[in-house]
């Protein structure tokens, strides 16, 4: 089956991408599969300057998932474009940069640096930073801020497609989706982690030094699926589904509700060859269930008549 997908200015050889922060810069996984086999690699979040990230402990295993509060530890955008990007097989696999900043101007500057790089296929915008100037509410929870940040990135992104990654920690995710679309986003990816927490009754301490952390993994898949379902019905721009995908069946569920592609995150930790295997498994399963093509299957969810 032809697994190629094109949307929002991106051309992918298949709908399998790896989610930011779960696949390093890609090279970490090269011993376990051919990076060129993937539809896309979203590199770990980049900031203008290097960041040390949060103190330890940073991760905790929870039922069917995990919590993380890494704090966007990264070597900075300059290091990425000079030291890492040249060694990635970007001519043969779409490499997306994930942008993390804490104000619109900084987002714009970051986008400017990355837009100049031939090896970057698109920009994914992480709007999870608490906006100190606006009372500490994350950009991703304020539709007006989402629109402003999207505009700032889009203005400096040149010809690069801009994808905004939405947070599920909001009352109505469709409002945020429309704000990103209004700001000029070419695509949306969702969901980012759910805000969560874990504590230890014996030590009487939080299990994560940052106290509050992001929940990911199979536990969040129903929430993610619901968000994608709502968003594809409320905006005209393409949507990439993320959240708890741990099998080909999970991935196809996101396509069924209307996602153009998927990102695999926590499942990369189940085993490091997971994403590579998923490419073949998705194609096999589509054939097995009698789908005629990706286009025929995508968004074909039969809803009960109202």
């Amino acid at each position: 089956m032809d697994m190629h997908v094109s949307f929002g200015g991106l051309n992918l050889k298949n709908p399998v991408m790896t989610a930011s922060g779960t696949f390093g810069f890609g090279l970490e996984f090269a011993p376990y599969g051919d990076l060129k086999k993937l539809g896309g690699i979203v590199a770990k979040g980049l900031s203008l300057k290097p960041r040390e990230g949060n103190p330890m402990p940073r991760i905790a295993e929870t039922p069917c998932g995990m919590l993380n509060a890494i704090g966007i530890q990264n070597p900075g955008v300059e290091h990425f474009v000079t030291q890492i990007l040249p060694s990635l097989p970007w001519r043969d696999v779409a490499v997306l940069a994930n942008l993390y900043a804490c104000d619109a101007a900084e987002f714009g500057e970051l986008a400017g640096v990355l837009a100049a790089e031939e090896g970057v296929a698109a920009l994914e915008v992480n709007v999870s930073c608490p906006n100190v100037k606006e009372g500490g509410v994350a950009f991703g929870q304020d539709p007006a801020q989402i629109a402003r940040v999207t505009e700032a990135v889009k203005k400096r992104a040149g010809s690069k497609p801009v994808m905004v990654k939405l947070s599920p920690n909001v009352t109505d995710i469709t409002v945020c989706a429309r704000a990103a679309a209004d700001g000029g986003a070419d695509a949306l990816s969702l969901i980012n982690t759910l805000s969560g927490m874990a504590v230890d009754i014996r030590t009487r301490r939080p299990r994560i030094a940052n106290v509050i952390a992001g929940l990911s993994g199979p536990a969040i898949k129903p929430v993610a699926l619901r968000c994608v379902h709502q968003v594809v019905r409320s905006v005209d721009i393409p949507v990439v589904g993320i959240g708890g995908i741990a099998s080909a069946e999970d991935a196809l569920e996101f396509l069924l509700v209307g996602a153009q592609a998927v990102q695999v995150g926590t499942a990369n930790f189940l085993r490091p060859d997971f994403a590579f295997n998923l490419v073949d498994q998705m194609e096999a399963l589509l054939t097995e269930i009698g789908a005629k093509s990706l286009d025929e299957f995508r968004g074909s969810l039969q809803l009960p008549l109202a």
Partner: peptide, 23 residues
């Protein structure tokens, strides 16, 4: 031997500090 999520350097959950204080 820190708690590890992936073992391959991706999850950044097992970090310690080098002598320069970098994770």
């Amino acid at each position: 031997e820190n708690r590890m999520g992936c073992g391959v350097g991706a999850c950044l959950g097992c970090v310690t500090k080098d002598s320069a204080g970098h994770h």
